[in-house]
């Protein structure tokens, strides 16, 4: 599993459901580079969930192609295709007749791993999603809170270490505080082990917190696809501008991670230079820059990760915009 995560590419994908007057997905052509955390954002009914489900073939497109790692998914056995993709949905869909550990072990069992291996992996995963294994391993899903259930759902999706993760409004039914925790954990997971993530949401704050690549959909089409900072700087249409609240730049910058505009530090590394933590947002960084600092060191503990400057933020904003 050391191979780099695969690209997902949509080529003129159309999906019209039987009896529907207009297409749910109407000609989407889009590339999500391997390892990208891509967030599809849009109002309900825009086709974002339908598009997501074409990737693991829970929905077959009416026309067009989807390539995963360069392979046309229509040519792959859907059961095999799905084993390589984690899937997390708002309603979680845990198996109520199984314990937490049996739920998480579903895919490892399907692929025939041995008991000792499965047990180790389950404990590891329960730990990854921050549930104490000893306490939760043998519980049934109905004995868990909504947030805990979704943690188990996430652990189950990660069990076979899939290079692709598909998430459909996974935190939509979770309370606000727990949602923020889960978002942080998903971001941390992505930082540890890059997967190609396709994450559907209608929550703009969530989209800005998580996305490397933001895809705005409307009426079955992609309205704009760009890094969040670039989309904020140059929304392609009035619809995108309204949806993402582009006029409230400060609020959005608070959600975007400093890494979006990080530049190399060069050889200078003055210890007394003003600095921010590597988990800070661009909003935090900008406030410090507006206070008069010419540049900010971004530090992860004692390690220097890079620097942030106003010019660098502007450069990053322009960089993505031309790519859309």
């Amino acid at each position: 599993m050391s191979a780099s995560p695969p690209e997902i590419r949509f080529d003129d994908v159309v999906k019209t459901f039987g009896g529907a007057a207009r297409a749910a997905v109407n000609g989407v052509t889009l590339s999500i580079p391997g390892g990208t955390f891509a967030v599809i954002l849009g109002p309900s009914g825009c086709g974002k969930t339908t598009l997501l489900k074409t990737v693991n073939r829970l929905i077959e497109p009416s026309s067009g192609f989807i390539f995963v790692g360069g392979v046309d998914t229509a040519s792959v056995d859907p059961v095999r295709l799905r084993r390589g993709m984690g899937y997390v949905i708002q309603n979680v869909g845990l198996f109520p007749h199984m314990t937490v550990s049996e739920n998480i072990a579903t895919v490892p069992r399907l692929v025939g791993q041995d008991d000792a291996q499965i047990r180790r992996r389950v404990d590891e995963l329960i730990d990854v999603v921050h549930l104490p294994p000893a306490e939760y391993r043998e519980r049934r899903p109905r004995a868990l809170s909504g947030g805990q259930q979704q943690r188990v759902g996430l652990a189950r999706a990660l069990a076979a270490d899939p290079p692709i993760l598909l998430m459909d409004e996974p935190f939509g039914a979770v309370d606000a505080i727990e949602r923020t925790h889960l978002q942080d954990e998903v971001a941390a997971l992505h930082a540890q082990r890059a997967r190609t993530v396709l994450f559907v949401t209608h929550d703009v704050d969530e989209a800005f917190r998580l996305a490397d690549l933001l895809i705005v959909m409307r009426d079955g089409r992609v309205e704009q696809s760009a890094p969040p900072l670039a989309m904020l700087a140059r929304p392609a249409t009035a619809f995108v501008s309204d949806l993402i609240g582009a006029d409230d730049v400060v609020r959005r910058l608070r959600a975007i991670h400093v890494s979006a505009a990080l530049e190399p530090a060069g050889e200078t590394d003055a210890a007394d230079e003003p600095s921010v933590d590597s988990h800070a947002s661009l909003g935090d960084a900008l406030s410090l820059l507006l206070d008069g600092a010419a540049r900010l060191a971004v530090r992860d503990g004692a390690d220097l990760r890079g620097v942030i400057t106003v010019a660098g933020i502007l450069r990053a904003a322009r960089r993505g915009a031309t790519a859309s």
């Binding site: 059961v79 869909g93 845990l94 198996f95 579903t106 895919v107 189950r156």
Partner: peptide, 18 residues
């Protein structure tokens, strides 16, 4: 039977029989 449990099972790569 909870349709989301079935959807999750299908998405995990279970066959119809499984």
């Amino acid at each position: 039977v909870d349709q989301y449990a079935i959807e999750a099972a299908r998405a995990m790569g279970m066959s119809d029989a499984q």
